[in-house]
Simulated scan of single mutants.
Amino acid sequence: MKPTINGAADKRGELKARNFPSAQQEAVKGAPPTRYDGPESSYRLAFTDTDFLLREDLRPVRMQLELLKPELVQQEQHIESTIVIFGSARIVPTDVAQRLVADAASANNETALRMAQTHLSMARYYDEARHFAQLVTQKSRELATPIYVVTGGGPGIMEAGNRGAYEVGGKSIGLNIVLPHEQAPNPYITPELCFQFHYFGLRKMHFLMRSIGLVCFPGGFGTLDELFEALTLIQTGKCRRRPVLLFGRDFWTRLINFDLLVETGMISPMDVELFRFVETAQEAWDVLEAHYGFSLREDAKGDLAGQL
């Protein structure tokens, strides 16, 4: 320690010293006495006791942890604004679809060929999602508040989003979910931003908490669930309005008869203005750029996103 003027040791550092050991320090202390180290013992610290934390009665605590962990990590990583990419896990890139077509044709398998041709017709959406994520990642580097791509962390369109960001040297977020058929995270997510959820509701909440825009590619039940929950929250004023872009007018208008919903009074005519159709990655970026201007000053940092 550096001596003070009067020669006494400088003990000012002790003013900030911990009064109690941290939870981590307590958790790594020595093993319990032999008599109490068995599985039937209750000696373990509550926050290190997995069996205790997984009790039915502890569900509220687990839900709180699942809310807090991604939130705190994203704060530490300075993630303030995001764009969410929704879409099917079953859409493959063009090169993969082309191989499927070639394999089915060489095997003279008509059923497999029809399926492969369908994959090929949908593959453009993988390529557009990948390109869109590249645009978001590259162009937002110039902004006061960078924008990060968020996906559900799985294959298909989700992989395309994370892959696009990865290929241009950017970070991206994956919000994976534990499923019965075990969905592993795709390999393009930034490791420190790859999260796993048990509760669908909390996962969907994290999709929206920092988002400045939602981009929805063709998908099935899961994609529709995510899209319509977001539209419902915006429609009812439970969260602020933000651009919702549906990739592929033909797909969405064949899937959902929006005109019928208006004609029968199920939604108001103004509700169809909550979203718009786009066809390309560049068009989607242009819509977002026009909506926000993307000309923030440094003193406006953080104004794009907003908590639910």
Rank of each mutant, 00 (worst) to 15 (best):
R297Q: 14
D51K: 14
A102L: 11
K16P: 00
G293N: 09
C194P: 00
T280W: 12
T264D: 13
P155M: 08
I189N: 00
I157F: 04
T4A: 09
K16L: 09
T48N: 06
H131K: 15
Q134K: 15
A144W: 07
N176P: 05
L202F: 10
T118V: 11
L67K: 14
A133W: 10
T94C: 00
L224D: 11
L245D: 04
F228D: 01
I234C: 05
T190F: 03
D271P: 10
A107Y: 02
A27P: 05
G38Y: 05
H181W: 14
T4R: 15
E229H: 04
L288D: 06
P218E: 02
L224V: 10
L233W: 03
Q235W: 09
L53V: 02
T34W: 09
A129V: 07
E289D: 13
H291A: 12
Q134E: 15
I79Q: 01
L214Y: 09
I212D: 00
S295N: 15
E56N: 13
L67H: 12
N186G: 05
D286Q: 15
V73L: 13
E226L: 03
V101C: 10
R130H: 14
L113H: 07
W285S: 09
L245E: 03
D225I: 03
L296C: 06
S140G: 08
P218W: 04
T137G: 10
G170C: 06
A123H: 07
T145L: 02
W285A: 08
F251G: 04
E283L: 03
G174P: 06
T145A: 02
D10F: 03
D37Q: 13
L54P: 02
Q98I: 02
G213S: 15
P33E: 11
R240N: 00
I256G: 04
V61Q: 01
R240F: 00
P185A: 03
S268D: 08
